[in-house]
Design a protein around this nucleic acid. Structure first.
Lengths: 345, 345
DNA sequence: TCTGTTGTTGACATCGTTGGCACTGCGGTG
DNA sequence: CACCGCAGTGCCAACGATGTCAACAACAGA
């Protein structure tokens, strides 16, 4: 009993192909052939190998496999902003479903809506040699992805387009959707419309505010900027809405530009007598129950289309990056159809 | 200018450590030392290497690194049932936050609530040599994980305990929570309590129904079984609730045993005159706005505790698997405090 | 001058797998 | 009988990184 015998100590180690080959009394290569389904192995030999693998509970090391065989990993990376926002996770769910049908696995990591973290997790994904990459970007700067893309990793940007890298993207028709919804409010007689938008850094927020501006200007309201307010999370949105309604010259309608803001606004308004009109961007589970009118779209479809695009590229499609614009639809449920109070100054 | 110079053809390939070393005119090993921050390299040499790496846009290949250095990957696997259920994603968000602080990255894959798929994605995670593994299990059978666990990969089961593998788990005090909530309904005078529970296969559903049975039996209701109904998604839950309320001997209270079922029930009841009392398991964003009383708990904390447990194991804690039971709290918001109608048979 | 120490560097083996190629029998062909 | 094709198998290199160890220079102390 020597002191340095490593196998004597209680340190079981994972069975490798070598162990399987040894037990089956074949070469490593033959074992590999059997276990990865290559032809030209006698059935009896194959059986021996399979038995050995089972006995040793052999699990191939994907790291080694993927390393050896270049970029044929089955992992696809998905970088989203925040796991607790259903908007992101539904996109992921949509992409996942389609990818799975093609034998690919979706791995999700979060950027926490921080550009620097987005960059880090994205690069980590690439270091792991994912087969394709999906990003719902927060950062404005993606030049660092250019070389990676040239190396052949398909990349698809979701919900927000790629700026300084020529990649495919799937977006919503934000500007038009908000313009048209704002026009509806104006047609109902609203002029004091409180818009609650996400941070300016976010592309969708900018687009949506632009749509609002389009409609307001068309209606002759040049000081539309004073009606634009900012919030990024539910609590802030709630506070902003409460303040607006309590303040002088309170808006007769509130327009919340994403799901979290809508949650805050709905919360603030709940139970108020003579509530303002309310519109939200993004549909949500309780919108029907609460009677909230929204600009609806299908995040699952957003993800599905992104997956389609990536699969196309993997199948060999080349050429200019595509930008797919998905439609939205207005769903009237009551809250957005309330006219402003009759008596006014 | 030879014909076979590979660099002459338009085949850009990813720069490796070798390329960097060549350009910097050092050995591969020295380049490795510089780029992975090992000591004992002359500053001038180090600078040359860093410059070369930058010029070639070198990105290390994690596959190779992780392969060589054994199981020291920074990836942690998380297997959840469904990306579009906030319950799961919030758990993931909680775990992610803590893991990140320890330099670990969370990779999420979904089982689609299918035991066979759960098994497959779990094994894939292990084949990728994750440092630790989290599972919100659907399957009842996890014996296949035993050898992997013995090899040292910490595993934590979340929301539902591990059955045939001795792993740590974090669960809620389901049975007690439901028993006590049911007792409240009984104290209010309810006897006809319609319970809408998830499938029997799901451990939490069984526990929660057991809690209901405890309370009903204690109150002398031996035929509690006839009040138990099943639903797995929002639509079914809604239909079940509608049927119950329309049928003869309609319940005076509805108790929904998870977030999706609650959504369906709330939907079905919305706007009804003289609505039944409603209780839900799992809190949700609009519960306050809608005045729905719930058994609340913190999924984010569930994830955080799971991460803590795994980190402990990684830090070397040995010994028996722990089962951590997290408390729930009852949040009264009105819907659960409605007494049954006075006039009765 | 010899020996020991310290810092810097590179040659080589290695992780677990797959690809390329060569080798062995064996039956069929000219 | 030399030759070919072909199924079945094994040896060796390779993927891209890191670990081990030794070589070497510079310098201090005896």
């Amino acid at each position: 009993m020597t002191l340095d015998a490593p196998d004597a100590t209680a340190r079981p180690s994972r069975a490798t192909l070598r162990d399987v080959a040894q037990l089956a009394e074949v070469s490593i290569k033959t074992a590999s052939r059997v276990l990865s389904g290559q032809p030209n192995v006698r059935e009896e030999t194959a059986r021996r190998v399979r038995d050995a693998a089972r006995a040793l509970r052999f699990r191939p090391n994907r790291l080694a496999r993927d390393l050896r065989s270049g970029a044929v990993s089955t992992a696809v990376g998905f970088v989203i902003g925040d796991l607790s926002n259903p908007f992101y996770t539904q996109i992921a769910a949509g992409a996942e479903r389609l990818l799975r049908e093609h034998g690919l696995e979706l791995f999700i990591a979060t950027s926490d809506e921080d550009p620097e973290r987005e960059r880090r997790v994205t690069l980590t994904m690439l270091e792991r040699r994912v087969r394709a990459l999906f990003v719902v970007p927060v950062a404005e700067e993606h030049a660092y992805l250019v070389p990676e893309q040239q190396l052949g990793t398909p990349m698809v940007f979701i919900d927000r387009p790629a700026v300084d890298v020529a990649a495919d993207s799937i977006v919503l028709d934000n500007r038009r959707a908000v313009r048209e919804a704002t026009e509806r409010l104006i047609a109902l007689g609203h002029r004091r419309i409180g818009l609650v938008a996400d941070r300016t850094q976010v592309w969708t927020a900018r687009e949506r505010v632009a749509g609002f501006a389009d409609a307001m200007r068309a209606a002759g309201t040049e000081d539309w900027q004073r009606w634009v307010h900012r919030a990024h999370d539910v609590a802030t949105a709630r506070a902003v809405a409460s303040d607006l309604l309590a303040g002088p010259d309170a808006p007769t309608a509130l327009f919340a530009l994403n799901n979290r803001i809508t949650a805050g606004v709905v919360n603030a308004v709940a139970g108020l007598p003579g509530p303002p009109a309310i519109l939200g961007f993004d549909d949500f589970e309780f919108a029907a129950t609460l009677g909230i009118s929204v600009i609806a779209h299908d995040p699952v479809d957003l993800g599905r289309r992104a997956a389609e695009t990536a699969l196309d590229r993997l199948a060999g499609r080349t050429g200019m990056p595509q930008q797919i614009v998905l439609p939205t639809r207005f769903v009237a449920r009551g809250s957005g159809e309330r006219p402003p109070p009759k008596a006014g100054p």
